[in-house]
Write a protein that binds this DNA or RNA. Structure first.
Lengths: 334, 334
DNA sequence: CTGAAAGCGCTTACAG
DNA sequence: CTGAAAGCGCTTACAG
């Protein structure tokens, strides 16, 4: 079976305490002893038992990333950034999707107790109370796009309203006055904030504000496609669409093309997120860029710091900017 | 601090053995006792210490998915399927990217010892020897798209050559005789197999076989874009392009459009994978469909079974079919 | 610089 | 049905 510290100790003719110290670089061990122990450990392929170590040290060197979903490039970018940063810090990364479901979040968080040193949770559904009550005390937590305020956790939020404002403002400045929005998932923090940014830009710019211009969506390509049907039924027809994320913009463009409507000449479109594929579409997508993988990396960085500080540090509230990227789909690439 | 089994035992006035049995459903415990213990555990928010349990049981209820990379929709779909199935079986999912790097794979596999009950590894780089030697004995392993043969592990492979064959055959049957291929990453198993399928279809169909038609790529959008430059320089110019995956097809279409070349009328294109976004592109992408999330789910299913069988089962070699999906980009949607 | 021993918090034969 | 006790494999004060 798997060799244990005892075998190493026996072969090296030392105590297990010395083996432990030699292998973990802690405590003073005579160089010769240490080298001998290391070599023997190598020879018999010894690796310390992780559970035993964790039980002693009360650390797991593992963190978890709880995401609402794992569908699409947005989340894969978050994971990529998180994985990379976790590896840099020698942490293992557990991932878990909560399906935006209260029960799933609670059971996920519950089952993580003792399994991880800290938690990054992205839970944009507006349901602050539930989330707050199911968060473990005593364990470092970083909140990503959560509507929970309070100084108990570090948090990172995207400046959604500002990003949406910039995008719509850009459309306005190029003459559009009747701009539809495809909204994100209902009760979703990012969706709400982007809607507010849209409204602010439209009203400031003297554009049409009306409920019929605010069409339902749920952040998927399919919902973007479906929204277009409604938008094309409006009278007068809007001249531009702001999709609350890139996936819906992709779906929308697809549907417009199917209907024989040229983008951007007959209908301008812009999205939000700047997922990697956005620049490779034709027309390439005008959008509000957020550094998605950086978001994942920042979250992990913040969490690792919290773990090192034993959660006794002053909690930070970070905001990640979203920046307008003008490409072809809005028809005003100047 | 976190309550332990002792506190529960004390409050319930029983031994810790009884608490353990009551909470794990194992062993007979009087119903009344069990209910009382459960209630107390609930009250004081007791959760068993995972490390202690693992140390005793020698199980971790965790599996790991080692991927070459985390970039793009392909891998995110694999993770999604794996996560879903792992949750169904009450396993936790660790993810790790190896960057297709020998050292990273070894250290990843090494650091997993004792941390997981089993490993799913996708390592399409052709480097069977290294991989085989760094695989842990005694731990269940499922190989995804690896060129390792042998009956020591379960394995799942995509039928790449057959999929590529179908796609190219389709192009041939619609009159194309000069078809370029954008190859995948060098020394990558899937890339090689797709190339073989391409060659077989072209030669059977009486198309042009030549080295200049086989252009380098590395599975990224950018490389697809770059490949187009070379392809457009060929004389005579090919009438169709088979990109070895969808991401490169997206990059290729982007570059063709930039060059003012209409897809599919002036140049037909097909990809491989059927990533979710493929059907929402305009033109929508003709491709070889593989059930990507299903691949991740199958891998986990197979692994969980191996864990339950204590790895003493007969190992299976599974092959996942790829099926032609005809859409707009090849110009022959009939 | 090294060792003996306690302790981390569980599970599970073994008795009764 | 329940308890006492051994044992899982480490780490880490405490001595020396």
């Amino acid at each position: 079976m798997k060799p244990t510290i005892k075998e190493v100790a026996k072969k090296a003719a030392v105590s297990i305490a010395t083996v432990s110290r030699a292998l973990s670089n802690s405590g003073l061990v005579a160089e010769a002893t240490r080298d001998r122990i290391r070599q023997i450990a190598e020879e018999i392929h010894y690796t310390p038992n992780v559970s035993a170590r964790s039980l002693s040290t009360n650390r797991t060197d593992t963190i978890v990333l709880v995401l609402p979903d794992l569908f699409g490039e947005f989340f894969s970018e978050v994971i990529r950034g998180a994985d990379q940063r976790a590896q840099q810090h020698n942490y293992h990364l557990l991932v878990s999707s909560s399906h935006n479901n209260k029960g799933d979040i609670e059971s996920a968080l519950h089952s993580m107790r003792g399994r991880v040193d800290g938690i990054v949770i992205m839970s944009p559904n507006i349901d602050a109370h539930t989330l707050e009550s199911s968060l473990p005390k005593s364990l470092p937590v970083v909140l990503l796009n959560c509507s929970v305020d309070g100084e108990r956790c570090d948090s990172i939020n995207i400046d959604d309203s500002q990003g949406a404002y910039q995008v719509v403002r850009h459309l306005i400045s190029h003459g559009h006055r009747r701009i539809a929005i495809i909204k994100g998932t209902p009760n979703n923090l990012d969706a709400e904030e982007r809607l507010l940014g849209y409204r602010k830009a439209v009203s400031e710019g003297g554009g049409d504000i009306s409920e019929e211009l605010e069409v339902d969506g749920n952040f998927t390509e399919l919902s973007g496609q479906e929204a277009v049907t409604k938008i094309l039924g409006l009278n007068p027809r809007p001249t531009a669409i702001f999709a609350s994320n890139d996936s819906m913009a992709i779906g929308a463009i697809s549907a417009l093309r199917k209907n024989g409507i040229q983008v951007p000449t007959e209908m301008a479109i812009a999205g939000f997120d700047d997922i990697p594929v956005a620049e490779y579409l034709r027309p390439s997508l005008t959008t509000a860029r957020i550094a998605i993988s950086e978001l994942g990396a920042m979250a992990v960085e913040t969490l690792v710091n919290a773990v090192k500080e034993r959660n006794a540090h002053t909690k930070k509230q970070l905001v990640l900017q979203a920046n307008l990227v003008v490409r072809e789909s809005c028809g005003c690439s100047d």
